[in-house]
Design a protein around this nucleic acid. Sequence first.
DNA 1: ACGGCACCGAAACAGCCGTTTCCTAGCGTG
DNA 2: CACGCTAGGAAACGGCTGTTTCGGTGCCGT
Lengths: 268, 268
Amino acid sequence: MRIDERIARHHGELSPQEQRAAGTLLEHLDDLATYRAAELAQLAGVSKATMSRLFRHLGFTDFDEVREHLRALRSAGEPRRVDGTPSLTAHAAHEAETIGRTLAQPGIDEAAALLAGAARVTVAGWRNGYPVALHLRQQLAQVRPDVRVAPAPGQVMGEELADVAAGDALVVMGFRRRPAGFAELLAEAARSGAGVVLVADPTAARHAAHASVWLECDVQSRLAFDSYAAAMSLVSVLADGVLARVGRTGQQRVSAISGAYTRLAEVE
Amino acid sequence: MRIDERIARHHGELSPQEQRAAGTLLEHLDDLATYRAAELAQLAGVSKATMSRLFRHLGFTDFDEVREHLRALRSAGEPRRVDGTPSLTAHAAHEAETIGRTLAQPGIDEAAALLAGAARVTVAGWRNGYPVALHLRQQLAQVRPDVRVAPAPGQVMGEELADVAAGDALVVMGFRRRPAGFAELLAEAARSGAGVVLVADPTAARHAAHASVWLECDVQSRLAFDSYAAAMSLVSVLADGVLARVGRTGQQRVSAISGAYTRLAEVE
DNA sequence: ACGGCACCGAAACAGCCGTTTCCTAGCGTG
DNA sequence: CACGCTAGGAAACGGCTGTTTCGGTGCCGT
């Protein structure tokens, strides 16, 4: 039983001061775990002793048990049962928040400018980052020439990046589970003089210094698998930003490609 | 400056153990405030002393200051810049709504059951749908065997699907700009007796009847380019649903793969 | 080989934490 | 008023926290 339910159930049996304390707990239900018991007591205006007694009355043996309980709630979110609807709602909300945070970054403009102005663009990605890289390449290719993805299937990264030079741009998808040698690759790229855009989750913070721009993009989700929704959203925004910068030329390119498709009847 | 930014900025000056500790902090960025410094030290496998020094190096005077900082972040939540980003905010909101609608579909459970129970799974995608297909394959491969993506590069679709049979499952990414012959392909697949999951935007409505399950997934956005954020979110939810169904076997598979990675030092 | 240096954990340490004990205030009852 | 009883805070207490000190270790440059 969750702590708020416990409070509701036992509310009648609690002494006045305990009720006051319980009320304060409810007000801070979302960030309860970040407080110490003494702080909560002070916040509620009761003594530490009373707060301690309250936890006991609610069926916890310890304040540590309360902490543990709260942390478990945070990671679980919801009981994950076959009727997945409630947890899915939470998951969707989490996705929305992640996207909002990702798209609010000031670095996006800078990155778009870099990609619009570069002579050539290489997009690199591995594992889960590879589909994202592929997608970015496809979108960028609609608005500007000379965009390629690396590593090509079965290719080693080193050779691919050998000819990246000053004036080029490199986008690196650095989501967690990065390949060995990732840091070296980034350093090498920086040394070449190319602009480097690092798209990565917070665990890549250590690599950020070696990139021209770091676009933070979380992949953690409430489920067992990471979600790359924010990453894909970022791709569309980036591509849009590049389009805005290359202007008419790019727009023509879009319609030229589109026209070619229709003529060839490749697509419906 | 936020703590993850501080870590990124100072990462170079940190000692090896401090970097390890910092990495652990980043992994728990969202529930950092709920831990005590000693717990974090243990989690990271460093001494309390090192953790203490790390905080100092990051510009905090105290662990208490770190806690305070984190709590401030939590309450801050949304207030963001107002200048150039209003349209991006609207875009983000639109994404959120699309994701919410996509994940609310009842067909997801049905699709997950299909994918969990199939003898083999083939994921098909073209153009913008191809990265999504690739991603789904990668995630599904973590929880069940015999998952492949089609068409393989340079391959024509027909041959690829020739051996799809009853008892198999086929996931088709049918976002707009579908290749010619899409309808025939779907019909063919249905005739083979395999379960067909069609993941597609509303413009594919006329194909829905030929699939066992239609998962509607909009790609339209406020920008010039379509966004596949909802599609990727759907992938993570699908993979999670399949994992829940195959149960222990799948979980073992996940950890086995994860273990293999660590052993081979392929990833960091 | 040597000293200098940076790193880092063990241990010392002061202080605060949360629990428990103890005791007073307040109240109903006889 | 005396008594019993409960509520609740002050303070005692043991334990653990986070910081600092200290010494061992490994790696340079000389």
